[in-house]
Nucleic acid binder design. Structure first.
Lengths: 243, 243
DNA sequence: CGGCTGCTTGATCAAGTTCAACTTTTGTGG
DNA sequence: CCACAAAAGTTGAACTTGATCAAGCAGCCG
C-alpha cells in the first residue's frame, strides 16, 4: 500500500479495489527527491509519469528575465505529469519545493491499463481535467482579484486540497512554501506577499508557526477570496469541509 | 463534411480517415446560435458536448461584483465543453461572442467511440490537454506580464490558433471581440486595453479595420509578448508559422 | 561561527484603475 | 432607409495598488 494516496481527491472513490490494485501493480519504483530539485524539464521527451506521494512540487514557466511563474502547485496524491502521457512533451518545468517521495509509471503501462479498463482511463482523464479546473480558477483569481483576495483564495484552495487527502488536522497543515514561492504562484512580489500575509494574520484569519498554517476563520478567508470549492469536486473526497 | 474543422489544430492529423468518419457520424445536429448567447451555464448537468464550427465563444467565471474573467477563448475547430464529458458539470459559463455554428455530440456516443478506438479516445484527451496548456500560458502571462506584453502575447496566440485552422489570409483575420472583451481575457479594464492597443498600433505591430486584424510585425509582437507557440503543438497543424 | 536565504519594514515610483465626458459605430424599430 | 438608442471607442485627470529599491533582522545549515 505504498501509494495509499493514489488519486485521493481525484475521483479515486469512483474506482473499484481491483482497479486501484491494477494501477498500483504498475508502479515501477518509488524514490525520494530532495527539495528544490527538478523532476522534469521543459522540452524533455517524457516516457514516465510521476505520482506525488509526499511533499510539494510545482510547475513553473520562466520569463526572459528569469522570473518564474508557477502554473500549478502539486500536493500529495496528485499525478504531477500525467499531461505528458498524451502530449509527449512538457511546456514547463516541474521542481520540488520540499523533499518529496514519488512513484513513477511507464507510459506504456498506463496506456495498457487504460485500454483494459475504460473506467480507469476515465479516472486518469478526470485527474488531468481537475488540474485544468484548478488552472481556470487561477486565471480567474489572477485576472480579477487584488492581492489580499488572491492570497486568501490560494490559502483556501490549499486548505481544501490538503483536507481532501487527509493532511489537515485541527484546521492546520504543514506548508513548506516560502513567501517568494507564494509570490511566484500569485503573481506578486515576495515583499508584497509579506505585507498581505501580515494583514491577513492581523485580521485573525490564520496563524503560522514553524511552516505550519492553522486556519482560524475559513469562512472569512473564503469570503475575502471569493472562494468556492465546487471546482475541486470535493464531494468525491472527504466531505469535512464540502458545502 | 459539415465538421471539416473537427479537431483541426488539435492533433487531428494523428487520426485516420475512418476515425474522423466515425466521429463525424455521431454529430446529432448542427445549429446556429446568435452572438452573446449562453451555450452552457455553470452548475448545469451536461450530457452533450459542443464542437465549434464557426465563430467565437468564451468561457467565463463571474466575480461577486458581476465582473467577468474569461478563462478560455474558443475558435473554430475547438471542442468547447469536452471537459464536461468526464467532469459532468461545468465550473463556469460558456457564452458566444459572435454568431456561431455548432455541432453537438451525445456524451454516450463519445464514450462508445472512445472505447472502440483508443486512438480517438487519446485524441479527445489530447484536445482537452491542449486547452489546459493554453490555460497555463494565460496564468503565466497574467502573472508575469505588464499590459503591453499581455495583449501582445494574446494577439500572437489568436493569430497562431486561427492560422492553425486556416482562418488567416494575408496575415489578417476576422476578429469580432470588443476592447472590453479583450479586457475580460487579459485581466485589464476596457479603458486600458484601448490605450495599449493604440500604443501597439502606433508601433506598427498591427492594424485594425472593421473587426479585421492584420498583423504587420509578428516577430515584434512575439518578442514584446514573450510568445513561443510551442505549447500549441503547431507541428500538428499547418506549418506556415511554426518555427 | 559565517553566510545564505527568507522575513520584515520604510520610502519612492510607476502601472493601471476609476471616474467622467465625449465621439463614433452598430443595431433596431418605425 | 432613417432615427434613435445602445454599445463601443477615445481621451483626460485624479487616485490606488503593488513594484522597486534599500536596509536591517532572524533562522538555518554547513
Amino acid at each position: 500500500m505504498i501509494s495509499h494516496k493514489f488519486l485521493m481527491g481525484r475521483g479515486r472513490d469512483q474506482l473499484s479495489i481491483e482497479e486501484i490494485r491494477m494501477i498500483e501493480s504498475k508502479i515501477s519504483n518509488v524514490i525520494d527527491v530532495p527539495a528544490r530539485e527538478p523532476l522534469a524539464c521543459r522540452g524533455e521527451e517524457v516516457v514516465k509519469s510521476t505520482l506525488l506521494l509526499e511533499g510539494f512540487a510545482s510547475r513553473y514557466k520562466n520569463d526572459q528575465t528569469g522570473a518564474r511563474q508557477a502554473v500549478e502547485l502539486h500536493v500529495p496524491g496528485d499525478f504531477v505529469d500525467l499531461h505528458a502521457l498524451p502530449l509527449k512533451q512538457l511546456d514547463h518545468d516541474i521542481i520540488t519545493i520540499s523533499e518529496v517521495k514519488v512513484a513513477t509509471f511507464d507510459h506504456q503501462d498506463l496506456m495498457d491499463i487504460s485500454q483494459k479498463s475504460p473506467r480507469l482511463a476515465n479516472a486518469l482523464w478526470f485527474s488531468t481535467l481537475l488540474d485544468a479546473a484548478i488552472n481556470r480558477k487561477w486565471i480567474f483569481s489572477h485576472g480579477r482579484h487584488r492581492a489580499e483576495a488572491r492570497i486568501a483564495n490560494f490559502l483556501c484552495e490549499i486548505y481544501v486540497r490538503l483536507d481532501m487527502v487527509g493532511l489537515v488536522t485541527d484546521n492546520a497543515f504543514h506548508f513548506p512554501l516560502t513567501q517568494p514561492d507564494i509570490g511566484e504562484i500569485t503573481g506578486l512580489t515576495g515583499v508584497h506577499v509579506n505585507r498581505v500575509l501580515r494583514w491577513l494574520r492581523n485580521r485573525g484569519l490564520f496563524v503560522v508557526d514553524k511552516r505550519r498554517i492553522q486556519i482560524l476563520d475559513y469562512d472569512g478567508l473564503a469570503k475575502l477570496g471569493e472562494f468556492d470549492p465546487d471546482y475541486l469536486f470535493p464531494s468525491f473526497a472527504r466531505p469535512e469541509h464540502a458545502p
